[in-house]
């Protein structure tokens, strides 16, 4: 039983809560993005404080996934600024209030501090569970193989998958793959974790085990932005819920405010459909 239970002290495996240098970990200001002529993000502003868990909800096509992808520059933005740990993400100032896209090397360095978990897991299929976890710490952080393996094993154990070390991803269930994907992101000791609908591609009986890991992370003080339809999760662990629709932040507040007494009509209709 103990071999596949999710244990406490997840962050202990990576040496405690990674401390960002600043109080405001994410600061997005007036972000605008177009896909061709489609205006998908309209003056989006969002601040995430240290150790805060923000859950973004909203109908599909509302721009929530696009926004979270902008935070680690997997998507370009056309105007506005996103700061993570006080650093402008993906761009550098080029005078006269203009920015140009930053060098690939600098963007890669910024992404080291931002963990991301994808809807479709995106584990590397040609590597075993452990190899998936140790790859980036060795290649990117320059960690020694022994140290990376020790950290990797500790993480695997704490997400309840110590026995699956040598197993390739396609031999694992969706829930197991997603837990390994979370461990892979944590191995880089990120100051911020982004979750892009982490349970949407899972069979219902596997959602619980993934949410359990995420709840544990939240309890231990990881700073997180989560795009999710799991209202139970949002209610339990979110410090703040952000409702997006049509590229706009419609409403934000504590889970209680947003779920029990939403002020906006759009939020009420959305919640009435999913709750």
């Amino acid at each position: 039983m103990s071999t596949n239970a999710i244990s406490h002290d997840l962050l202990g495996a990576i040496g405690g809560v990674p401390r960002p240098d600043v109080d405001v970990v994410v600061d997005a200001r007036d972000v605008n993005k177009w896909f061709g002529r489609l205006h998908v993000l309209k003056d989006v502003c969002l601040q995430v404080k240290r150790q805060e868990v923000v859950v973004i909800i909203g109908p599909s096509g509302s721009g929530k996934t696009t926004f979270i992808r902008c935070v680690n520059h997997l998507e370009k933005i056309q105007s506005g600024r996103i700061f993570v740990n006080g650093h402008l993400i993906g761009y550098r100032e080029a005078g006269a209030n203009k920015v140009v896209e930053d060098k690939e090397k600098n963007i890669a360095r910024q992404r080291m501090e931002i963990g991301m978990v994808f809807q479709r897991f995106n584990l590397f299929p040609h590597m075993t569970a452990l190899e998936n976890i140790i790859e980036a710490p060795i290649q990117v952080r320059g960690m020694s193989r022994d140290e990376a393996v020790a950290t990797g094993r500790a993480l695997l154990e704490r997400v309840g998958l110590a026995a699956k070390e040598k197993v390739y991803p396609n031999q694992l269930s969706g829930g197991q793959q997603q837990r390994i994907a979370i461990a892979r992101a944590l191995a880089m000791k990120p100051a911020l974790m982004l979750f892009d609908e982490p349970t949407s591609a899972l069979d219902p009986e596997m959602i619980g085990e993934v949410l359990e890991v995420m709840k544990e992370l939240a309890r231990e003080g990881m700073t997180m932005i989560v795009v999710s339809h799991e209202m139970g999760f949002a209610r339990e662990v979110a410090n703040r819920v952000v409702m997006m629709d049509d590229g706009v932040v419609v409403e934000e507040g504590t889970p209680d405010q947003v779920f029990s007494s939403p002020t906006q009509e759009r939020t009420k209709t959305f919640l009435s459909k999913i709750l």
Partner: peptide, 9 residues
């Protein structure tokens, strides 16, 4: 995307 998000160049 997964590789990039881990900071790989």
């Amino acid at each position: 995307e997964a590789a990039k998000s881990l900071g790989m160049n």
